[in-house]
Simulated assay, not measured.
Amino acid sequence: MLTQRLRTLEEEGIVERRVIASSPVQVEYPLRLKGRDLEQVVDAMMRWSHRWIPTPPSAASEDVPADSEGTPAP
């Protein structure tokens, strides 16, 4: 499933597949220009999710600043 999604992203020009000759062989998928152009959209979705989707207490992170009510800041 992951392989198919990565292939689709590669076909759409969002990522580039790079094979690194090593033992074991490594594969990287850096973003291409089209993928980097999505950065603002992904950031906006992350901010929205931090504001509106509750984080389970066991998965709470200290990296996300919160307001006085404990809601993550946008």
Rank of each mutant, 00 (worst) to 15 (best):
M1P: 14
M1W: 01
L2V: 05
L2A: 10
T3E: 15
T3R: 11
Q4C: 06
Q4W: 00
Q4T: 13
Q4Y: 06
R5M: 02
R7S: 14
T8A: 14
L9K: 01
E11H: 06
E12G: 10
I14C: 09
I14N: 07
V15I: 12
V15A: 04
E16N: 10
R18W: 05
R18G: 02
V19E: 08
V19A: 04
V19Q: 08
I20A: 05
A21W: 14
S23H: 12
S23A: 06
S23W: 15
P24F: 08
P24Q: 11
V25W: 01
Q26I: 03
Q26T: 13
V27D: 05
E28Q: 15
E28P: 04
Y29D: 08
L31H: 03
R32Y: 00
L33A: 15
L33M: 13
L33T: 13
K34N: 13
K34H: 07
K34D: 14
G35R: 02
R36F: 06
R36W: 07
R36N: 13
R36A: 06
E39I: 07
V41F: 12
V41H: 08
D43S: 07
D43P: 01
M45D: 12
M45C: 13
M46F: 12
M46D: 11
R47H: 09
R47F: 10
W48P: 02
W48D: 12
S49F: 12
S49D: 14
H50E: 13
H50M: 13
R51W: 04
R51S: 07
R51V: 10
R51H: 12
W52M: 14
W52N: 15
I53V: 15
I53Y: 01
I53T: 11
I53Q: 01
P54T: 00
P54V: 04
T55E: 08
T55N: 06
T55H: 02
P56H: 11
P57C: 03
S58W: 05
S58C: 09
S58D: 14
A59C: 11
A60C: 05
A60N: 00
A60H: 05
A60Y: 02
E62G: 13
D63P: 01
D63I: 11
V64T: 05
V64F: 09
V64K: 10
E69A: 06
G70E: 05
T71H: 05
P72A: 04
A73K: 14
A73V: 13
A73P: 01
P74T: 00
P74C: 00
P74D: 06
P74Q: 00
